[in-house]
Amino acid sequence: MQSISKGGGGAGVIAALGGNAEALAKIVGDGQSSTPSFELAALEKALPEIVRLNVEQRMARYDVKKDRAEVMGIAALVFATAARQLGISKLVAPGVGIREAVLLELAETAREEQAAAEGAHDKALLTAARGFANRVDHDTTHGEHVRLLARALFHQLRDVHGVPDDMGVLLEVAALLHDVGEVVNPQGHHKHSEYMIRWARLPGLDNTAREMVALMARTHRKDGARARQIINESPLPKDLRKQCLKLSGLLRIADSLDTQHRSRVEQVVATRMGNAIVLDLVVRDGPSRGDDQLLRKADLVKDELGMELRVTVARPVDPTRPNDPTRPVDPTRDPTRAVDPTPPVGPTVDPATPSGAIPVGPVRDGTS
């Protein structure tokens, strides 16, 4: 006990774990059933009797089993001595022990391993999608940018669309491959994309996931009503059809944000404002006359989420002239990068965001 530092004042409370603590709490405790506890003074008062009794007498006196009666005297002595040395006046017996701690540790380890496995699976699936695109000689520059935008929208609006997180990688795969059918014919390429995805060698995609990816690629074009009809007529279960409609809606928006395949949108911040979703965009060349087309394919999301969509467009600020918001960004900067390595500069969410708003961040890519 000399290695245990003394506490100060004797007013502390400590948790006492295990069956012995629970047995002592029943003998000298306060009688609470939820979280029983006992005072050090009460334990010390009962200690001489507990230690004096033999095993059979403890079993009869305290109504405990033999294995508990054999050790509870020593346990009471240890608890009393440790509490006195530490300056503890009260011991709480929460009803848990080493077994529960081990189970919690195992559960936490399993959760971490599952998360790691899911992350590895997602990376492998995206790698397979890129490999397939390379094999058919499809340029994925546009697809990669749409993937970044779709991924940002999916995570920033998760509280709005309610689609499970593990579906996000299917949206990314669909974004990568939504135009792959152009290698067959640019005209009607969405139909070719659907066919190619259905028959592509994409390890990691089961039949259901492949169906969803193919449907998203098929419905990234044309009007929302036709997209809804195609997905609703698919063999997917009803709940997955609903999720697929929302994912397709997000893909359609991400694709429309890069309509001219120029990777203009460098950052997107999606915020819920009442019954509307506001997309604040940082655009490489600033606002232009064609910005009214940025949400030209938002009809499906509007219908599925029951919310209006609005967009604001701003030019990036040159970091060498932070006080000059009109100065254009350095033209030598790589326009294909979705995000600068430096902290983002552009539209931010006002701290006084109305109640119900979802604070979100810029496009981030943690998978490639």
Rank of each mutant, 00 (worst) to 15 (best):
Q85C: 07
R111K: 14
I98A: 15
G131H: 05
P335C: 04
A270S: 11
G73R: 03
A338H: 08
G274F: 00
L251D: 01
N54R: 10
T336A: 13
K90A: 00
R226Q: 15
A16L: 05
R264F: 14
A225E: 13
A225S: 10
P48N: 00
R218H: 15
R262T: 07
I74V: 14
E266I: 07
P331H: 08
L279P: 12
V180D: 13
A25D: 02
P341K: 11
L148H: 08
D122S: 08
V13F: 05
R327T: 10
R52C: 02
L53G: 09
I50G: 05
S234N: 08
Q32C: 06
G12T: 00
G19K: 06
V102H: 11
I74Q: 15
L205K: 04
M59F: 03
A93N: 06
T259Q: 13
Q2W: 05
G97T: 01
I253E: 03
L250Y: 00
A338G: 14
L53I: 05
R198Y: 12
R333S: 11
H192E: 07
A110V: 11
G162H: 07
P287D: 05
K66R: 14
A75L: 10
A174I: 01
A117C: 03
V360P: 05
L153N: 00
L257R: 02
L245I: 01
G31H: 02
D280A: 14
T81W: 03
H145D: 07
V268Y: 03
N54M: 00
A110C: 13
K45C: 09
E70Y: 02
D292L: 08
G286T: 03
D291R: 01
V265F: 05
P36D: 01
